[in-house]
């Protein structure tokens, strides 16, 4: 591998890792704060991607589609929390797994009914549809850099919220301790609803900005879900920074694995996970 290819693969893995982080951070917050295992989290990513496809063909502009999509996905999150997840807080994990498994089936079939089972591509917006030259022979698409940049901005924003706000204080204390949350003047039900909607919004947003590079296809949600589980397991449940580190680690493993050991790339990240489980079964980071 020459230095140019290496650089391109490095940029790809960072972009992929950051995207995974957006999805996994919501997943890990929902685990950490609400104690809920949400298998349907990957479906939100899929919903986002399909919204990017449908809304951008409707409006003709990906950015408008993204703004609309964020609003819709947050509304979806608020609705689902109100209609289903509130019923799950007192239930055991088995029931949570099952209900959210049912949700996946519902989302997949709705997708099939509404949009069909074809693979679609989403056009890169004209303003970002060019490449930068890395060397004489190599260039890199600006849209991928744009994805990374947006993810970094969101990561910094998340950092600010968690470190500097009262909401973040609760998140850092990191639990569903009713009394503590209420003593800080927060309505816990509202907190749960917001955290959940935030998670849905982040996952859907990741799907929307990823749509032009990954294309839009059935099953994309569950594929990303399982990888995000690996991110959360490696990073430590409830730990946003753990999720960031783990997501980048997985981005690197996956991207370079595909180049170097194509047959074993799919299994690579799981082997990484197994190694980390032996070393630190609770994940790399304990909290936030």
């Amino acid at each position: 591998m020459d230095i140019g290819t290496f650089l391109i693969q490095l940029l790809n893995s960072v972009q992929y890792g950051l995207l995974l982080f957006l999805i996994a951070s919501g997943l890990t917050l929902i685990f950490g704060i609400m104690g809920i295992i949400n298998l349907a989290h990957g479906s939100f990513y899929m919903v986002g991607a399909y919204m990017a496809f449908s809304l951008s063909s409707l409006t003709g502009n990906l950015f408008v589609a993204i703004v609309l999509g964020i609003v819709l996905s947050v509304l979806l999150g608020l609705f689902l929390e109100w209609a289903l997840f509130t019923k799950l807080y007192q239930r055991d994990h088995l029931q949570q797994v099952l209900l959210t498994y049912g949700l996946i089936l519902v989302f997949e079939e709705l997708r099939s009914i509404l949009v069909g089972n074809d693979v679609h591509s989403v056009a890169i917006p004209a303003v970002l549809n060019y490449s930068v030259k890395l060397s004489e022979t190599l260039s890199y698409p600006v849209y991928r850099l744009f994805i990374s940049a947006v993810c970094v901005v969101l990561a910094v924003a998340l950092y600010y919220v968690i470190q500097k706000t009262r909401l973040g204080m609760i998140i850092r204390a990191g639990s569903a301790n009713r009394e503590m949350v209420q003593s800080l003047g927060f309505n816990i039900n509202l907190l749960y609803r917001l955290v959940f909607a935030l998670g849905v919004g982040l996952a859907a947003f990741a799907g929307m900005i990823a749509a032009p590079v990954s294309s839009v296809y059935p099953g994309m949600g569950t594929q990303v879900l399982i990888i995000c589980f690996v991110v959360v397991v490696i990073g430590g449940i409830g730990s946003v920074w753990g999720a960031l580190v783990a997501a980048l680690l997985i981005g690197l493993t996956d991207t370079f694995g595909k180049v170097m050991f194509p047959q074993w790339a799919g299994a690579g990240i799981y082997i990484l996970m197994a190694a980390i489980l032996l070393w630190r079964p609770e994940g790399l980071f304990r909290r936030i």
Binding site: H93, V233, Y270, I271, L277, P281
Partner: peptide, 17 residues
């Protein structure tokens, strides 16, 4: 080595492997 939610996710991940 894991329990609870971790166990669910890790078993899923191993099966995926």
């Amino acid at each position: 080595r894991t329990r609870g939610i971790y166990f669910i996710m890790v078993t899923l991940a191993f099966a995926q492997m």
